[in-house]
Design a binder for these strands. Sequence first.
DNA 1: GTCGCTGCAAAGCTTTTGCAAATCA
DNA 2: TGATTTGCAAAAGCTTTGCAGCGAC
Lengths: 148, 148
Amino acid sequence: MKQVAVKNIEEKGLRWTPQRQAIISAIANSEKKHLSAEEIYLLTKKTMPSIGLATVYRTLELFCAMGILQKLNLQDAARYELLQKEENAHCHYLCLGCGKIFEVPLQEELPLPSTKNDESLEDFTVVNSSCWHFGYCRNCKLRKENKT
Amino acid sequence: MKQVAVKNIEEKGLRWTPQRQAIISAIANSEKKHLSAEEIYLLTKKTMPSIGLATVYRTLELFCAMGILQKLNLQDAARYELLQKEENAHCHYLCLGCGKIFEVPLQEELPLPSTKNDESLEDFTVVNSSCWHFGYCRNCKLRKENKT
DNA sequence: GTCGCTGCAAAGCTTTTGCAAATCA
DNA sequence: TGATTTGCAAAAGCTTTGCAGCGAC
């Protein structure tokens, strides 16, 4: 993972700096997925207290452009997650009750939509996907029922 | 559509005001989908010049809570679209080249993910879905090839 | 009168940008 | 040396909030 990043970065005349390493390490070692820029900033600060928030933002943007991270625009703020080959297509289930996010890989290729009506779509190359389902998890439904 | 909204609103002790009517009309009559709050504000200003931006934001939030609108968190800003029964599940294809959004209804129910590994998901009730595919449309791919 | 709604202005947040210093090739 | 990168501070942009006045019931 890191090796690939280093190679990609250096091929483009960019540098693999301690900051970039610290940021990707913080993300990779975090148990939590879907980290916000602020969270990544705080995590990275643990190993590199001098790092600036702007650097984090610039690095996250770079990593997204390189395909290392995927940016998710959520309600409160953007969140980032490691993007690996096998994870290219997966679904997110966000519980509106507790805010928990469940993640489910899609084993097979994306469902083919009907492209009859829209010519231009017939030749659309999908680079990346993000599917979100909003609803309520079992715990929250049970909690709801008990209240009523 | 409007009738349903009025009924829902008044049932909850809320009011169906000229502003709310103007906003929903602006959205419904717009050819463009996926309008930003700013765009909705400007559209509504045409029929009601005195309206304030804060009112638009508050109304959009209300309509989302009522299930009349769906909020889409995109890169630049949040966007809103009418949420109708038949449209409950649909895919968005966003071209990273030109930013155009193609929309494709999913005829059949959502693809069933593998829920083996995650117990809590087995009993997840989906209220609403939003699927996004990012990539390049034909025009942008052609433009790219011509450049190289 | 009460309660909800509105418009304005100010504040709050996340994110971006400018710039001089630092760092690496 | 020349290019990229960084940290700080300031700015920008979207969205929310406080509040006094208005309007509906």
